[in-house]
Each structure stands twice: as C-alpha cells, then as structure tokens.
C-alpha cells in the first residue's frame, strides 16, 4: 500500500488548513487513478467532507495524511463502483474480438512480439515515459482501466475487485487481460520502438 506521505505530523490540524496541507497531494493521488480533473477534484472534496464527519476516528497513530489517504482510497473505490453500475460490462464477444486483433485463426501472434531495447527499458522511470503510459491508459475503456488501476496501482486482491465492480472472476480476468495486451502494444508503438527509430533516424 502506498501513501503520499510527505506530511509527518501525527496531530490533527484545523480543517481550514486541510486544503493547503493536503489538497495537492490528495488531488495527484486521485488524478493518477481516475484520470479526470473534475472527478478528481470532486473526490478530494468528498474526502475532506468525510474526514470532517469522521474527525473523532483519527487516532493520531497514523499521520493525518495517511488517515486522509485511506478515506480517499475508499472514495475512489466508490467512484469505480458507481461507474461500474452505470454501464454494461464487456461480454464474451468483445473478448473474441480482442483475440482476433492480436492472433490469427490458429491462435498464433499476428505480429511477433518485438524485443525492447535495453536503452528504452532503462529510461522507463523518466517523465516522458509516464506521459506515454498515461496516454495509453487513457485509451482503455473505463471498466477495463478501473479494474487495472485497482489491481496494479492499489494492489487490491481479485475477489475484492469483483465485489467493488460487481463482476465475475471471469469478467475481471478478461478485463485485466485486455488491459495488459493493449497497454503492452500501445507502449511498444509509442515508446519502446519509437525511441529506437528516433536513435536510428
């Protein structure tokens, strides 16, 4: 579990300082996961309001930031839950479609998976790479991305994700598979192989 723990205070600050103290960090935390500025702002506001109501539960063992991040995490899960209720889940036909995109009728790769040059994998911690990763994540359908975020960013166990999104294990597996196939290909096209072409050109 990861928290934006830059604030080390174990005492509770006054609510009218919260936006200054924690607003940006909570906003960033939310934005990486929900990807929409307006939604992230709304979730931060809801987090502060929930924190106000729950002030009595802050035991001072964790930092105030950690406590609020916990509330924020729940709000993000609530958002995914709501989004999941609002739309139809991807079904088996979409799964077949995905298979047809990447594999021929014999089940073999249509395009062989390229080797990623060491120079490009070593620069994966740079800001440029994050931007491409963001763009590739943005292309995923919401339901697929939300499942992937819960799994790969929040480290939530699969049973728990199924509960949050109200989907079956099979459906979750299909979504994560789709996310991984699409992200890998998108990163390959826009980062790993593009970087090589740039070097050669």
């Amino acid at each position: 579990m990861r928290n934006p723990e830059t604030s080390q205070r174990n005492t509770q600050s006054s609510p009218n300082e919260w936006v200054d103290l924690h607003g940006d960090a909570l906003y960033r935390f939310a934005l990486i996961r929900v990807r929409d500025h307006a939604v992230a702002e709304e979730i931060v506001q809801e987090t502060f309001l929930a924190a106000l109501r729950a002030q009595g539960t802050f035991a001072g063992q964790a930092t105030e930031r950690t406590w609020m991040t916990g509330i924020l995490r729940n709000k993000i899960a609530d958002h995914f839950r709501k989004q999941s209720r609002d739309r139809t889940t991807n079904d088996a036909s979409e799964q077949d479609e995905l298979t047809r995109v990447f594999f021929d009728k014999h089940g073999h790769w249509k395009n062989k998976v390229a080797s990623w040059p060491r120079s490009t994998t070593e620069s994966m911690s740079a800001g440029d790479f994050w931007r491409i990763l963001d763009q590739c994540m943005a292309k995923l359908p919401d339901g697929v991305r939300n499942a992937f975020v819960l799994r790969e960013m929040e480290g939530v166990k699969t049973e728990q994700i199924c509960k949050i999104l109200a989907i079956t294990t099979t459906n979750l597996g299909a979504r994560l598979y789709r996310a991984r196939m699409s992200l890998r290909q998108c990163l390959e096209r826009n980062w790993f192989l593009r970087e090589v072409q740039k070097d050669e050109g």
Binding site: R2, T6, G23, L31, V44, S125, L183
Partner: peptide
C-alpha cells in the same frame, strides 16, 4: 514485458509518494 510494465507502474507510485515530481496541483 508485461511484468516490466507492472514494475514500472510500482516504481512510479513510489516516486510519486515521495516527491511532488509531477507538480500537478489543484
């Protein structure tokens, strides 16, 4: 490569949690 992407994302979250690397603000 799939595992490489997983560790890159983890790395990003670690960096994000320590520094305000992206300067994203409300």
């Amino acid at each position: 490569q799939t595992m490489l992407i997983r560790s890159a994302i983890q790395q990003r979250l670690d960096v994000e949690s320590v520094t305000d690397v992206e300067r994203t603000r409300l």
